[in-house]
């Protein structure tokens, strides 16, 4: 009896609020996309810092990575939310949350990129340097293109992880899927039903994307 009512409510919620769910999916994907693309650019720089032969730069890179990996993301988001206005940067909640997510993801991606670069045989670097290429030319022409094979699947996995991590951003009502849940919950006083719908959507996104990544990874390996 209660089960039937619940199933009925789930279907009703899914139907009545379909627009809101789609919007939530959009924002969730957008946040994850911003985090991974900006995180890749910044992560490359942090990885190069950490691998620098100059002690001070490498300590700086390491400090950044350890700081962001050893504190909770939610705490980081809170800090950016309150810190940015404090130093005169007034951003919308969405933008502030994006900044927090990007900086957090940067730390994880820089480690992906570093291990990708270090997986390339050192003989490749030596051969390039022996031809007269400088450090940057060697990275650009020889090392990075080879590192990509290991980096790309890991980056795609980071994207899938970020889809789930962005749920924390709902704390600040930024329009992601979890925000959708909170909105529906407020309007209908239903708790479990919208949660189930949101859960199914997260699962579907995450599951299909990670299967896709695994498939692409096998293709890359086979090449």
């Amino acid at each position: 009896m209660t089960f039937e009512i619940m199933l009925d409510n789930i279907l009703r919620v899914a139907r009545d609020y379909s627009g809101l769910f789609i919007q939530g999916i959009g924002y969730t994907l957008l946040l994850a996309f911003i985090a991974v693309t900006c995180g890749t650019i910044l992560g490359t720089l942090v990885a190069l810092l950490k691998m620098s032969s100059k002690k001070i730069l490498s300590v700086l890179g390491t400090a950044y990575i350890e700081l962001f990996r050893n504190t909770p993301l939610l705490l980081q988001l809170y800090i950016f939310m309150f810190l940015l206005p404090e130093i005169g940067i007034n951003l919308s909640p969405f933008a502030a949350v994006s900044v927090g997510l990007v900086l957090n993801t940067t730390a994880y991606i820089s480690e992906i990129i570093r291990s990708g670069i270090q997986s390339v045989d050192h003989g490749q670097t030596e051969a390039a340097r022996s031809l007269g290429l400088n450090h940057v030319q060697t990275l650009r022409m020889v090392v990075l293109p080879q590192a990509m094979r290991n980096i790309l699947p890991a980056l795609a996995n980071e994207f899938v992880t970020d889809i789930k991590e962005t749920s924390l951003a709902s704390t600040f009502f930024v329009g992601d899927l979890m925000t959708t849940y909170r909105t529906i919950n407020g309007a209908t006083f239903l708790t479990l039903e919208p949660l189930f719908v949101v859960g199914i959507i997260y699962f579907a996104l995450s599951f299909t994307l990670s299967k896709l990544v695994a498939f692409l990874e096998r293709r890359l390996r086979a090449e």
């Binding site: 045989d121 003989g123 490749q124 030596e126 051969a127 390039a128 022996s130 031809l131 020889v142």
Partner: peptide
């Protein structure tokens, strides 16, 4: 020019 034991072709 340098040539290596393990070739190190790209």
């Amino acid at each position: 020019g340098m040539v290596f034991q393990h070739f190190n072709v790209f």
